[in-house]
């Protein structure tokens, strides 16, 4: 049994072209956290159940623990680090802060990414759409209600371009 070789893969992360040399089945989650030092993306279950590692690939929500590096070649990845505009929080992040949508914070980056996909799909979601959109993101602290309230509040914020 011979080992695989490391290969170079190119893709865009948070607007910047990056090149990573690693094994092709390396998990995107590990590439982000270790190779690119973007530790905002968290590992929870490592089996696609909890959503803590959620990122957007080409604008679509994915579990980065289930995406091999070979499948992000040429793609555009957005992580939680690419959501705020410098120091200025995205309206979803601001709403999570203002409505206590985060407690321990481990689920929060994934929850924000899922909320971004939800709001791109349904700019003013119903509570059922919020529940469905966030159903793949587990939170053991909040009981979810504060998170749902934060998403509702984020939709109601109209100031600013975002």
């Amino acid at each position: 049994m011979t080992n695989a070789s490391k290969e170079s893969f190119r893709f865009v992360v948070n607007g910047e072209p990056r090149e990573v040399t690693n094994y092709p089945l390396s998990r995107l989650l590990d590439v982000l956290r270790e190779d690119l030092e973007l530790t905002g993306t968290k590992e929870g279950c490592g089996e696609g159940e909890c959503g803590a590692c959620s990122v957007l690939i080409d604008g679509r929500l994915v579990n980065s623990c289930l995406v091999p590096l070979a499948q992000v070649e040429g793609a555009t990845v957005q992580t939680i680090e690419g959501v705020a505009d410098g120091e200025r929080l995205h309206r979803v992040q601001r709403a999570f802060v203002e409505h206590n949508g985060a407690q321990c914070g481990i689920c929060t980056p994934g929850m924000v990414m899922a909320a971004l996909e939800l709001l791109a799909e349904h700019p003013t979601p119903t509570i059922e759409q919020i529940r469905e959109g966030l159903a793949g993101n587990l939170c053991r602290c909040t009981g979810y209600i504060k998170i749902f309230e934060a998403v509702v509040a984020a939709c109601q914020q109209t100031e600013g371009p975002r």
Partner: peptide, 13 residues
Amino acid sequence: MTGYSPDYHVETP
């Protein structure tokens, strides 16, 4: 136990 990526060959046709 997690997967060990050096053990896996991937080809992209």
